[in-house]
Write a protein that binds this DNA or RNA. Sequence first.
DNA 1: AGGTATATTGAACGCTGTTCAATTAAATTT
DNA 2: AAATTTAATTGAACAGCGTTCAATATACCT
Lengths: 198, 198
Amino acid sequence: MGRRSDHTKEELQQLTIEATLALVKEQGVAQVTVRQIAEAVGYTPGMLYSIFDNLQAIFLHVNVASLKGLYAACVKAQKSSKQPEAAITAMGMAYLKFAEKNTHQFELLFQPVPPDVSRPLELGVRIRSLFELVELELKALDPNATDAAVALGARTLWSGVHGAAALNATNQLYSEQKNADRLIVQMLVSRFVDSWQR
Amino acid sequence: MGRRSDHTKEELQQLTIEATLALVKEQGVAQVTVRQIAEAVGYTPGMLYSIFDNLQAIFLHVNVASLKGLYAACVKAQKSSKQPEAAITAMGMAYLKFAEKNTHQFELLFQPVPPDVSRPLELGVRIRSLFELVELELKALDPNATDAAVALGARTLWSGVHGAAALNATNQLYSEQKNADRLIVQMLVSRFVDSWQR
DNA sequence: AGGTATATTGAACGCTGTTCAATTAAATTT
DNA sequence: AAATTTAATTGAACAGCGTTCAATATACCT
């Protein structure tokens, strides 16, 4: 066929991203192929290359969608408590929950990106805004802390949460306890916050 | 040809693992193919399937080799100081350094494993022994701590170190500071250790 | 109605991991 | 020493992959 124009380029991109996200959720990234995606959106594989650079680029846009979900979950958790420490813990737990309930998306999110492809700018923005949620709570705990200290603190805390989620997701915690990831976040946050006000 | 028997099965496996490790170091996992490995060891691709289940299995054995290196680096760092806190920090830094200097190996180490393939037992043993290094220092800091508390503490600390290394490796720390990963480990360890003795 | 622009196709390319019958050399038996 | 058995290794084949691009068929414009 020739020009169909059932959808604008942007609509087609959005459609593709949604279809790919669904496939990733079902099967995991490793199993998702260009031909599958094409069939899901009702086009041929070649078409996808007129709206995206390559398969990797599609996956990166799926990550943007995933981050929206993760961010929403963290914000919801944050609202659950007025006290900063509880709010941080709740966000940490939300992060773990997201990683456990959306294993395949989580895997994709933190998969290394080949050096020749560039991430969509929106990805960086979304990750930063996750950090900001934590920064806000740390600032509330100690209004005198410098911006640099707050930024570093948030990243320290979030490294711990992410590490627990990542090691747990790849079965590399090797703990006797069950829900070890939860215990870790609990311990991490409580000890870190205790010593936050110097 | 028929039976060549230049090497025993075990020698051939070791040869294959070493050749694959070298290729991974050079190019990263994603670029390494069965045909490349076969050529590197001087055989045809088919042969590899008589000594390994599949390509994934070869990669997992490469991970065992990588963990030996990581463990050695951590032990060396640990020996650099008598004081537990300094020893833990040094190990954390060694972990970061390993991740930075051996990016491709580090990526492979924490890549998700398809559920149908099983890890070599040795992998679990080696990861546990990494945790044990930290556990030893925590026990030294507080001899009264229960084994469970020590195990959890080590995993909390190590989640933080691993998270920093992983986020840094995938450029997802988004920090203004340079060597942000180092600063994170510094902050993490000092605050955690300060509050370790209840 | 005819011509131009372009969205989409579909076939092709060179790869990939994996399998397996055929081959060949070593080990064993005669 | 020759014949036979055993098994290590080959190499060709398979189905599938991501990606490219000339050909095509539709929508738009004059």
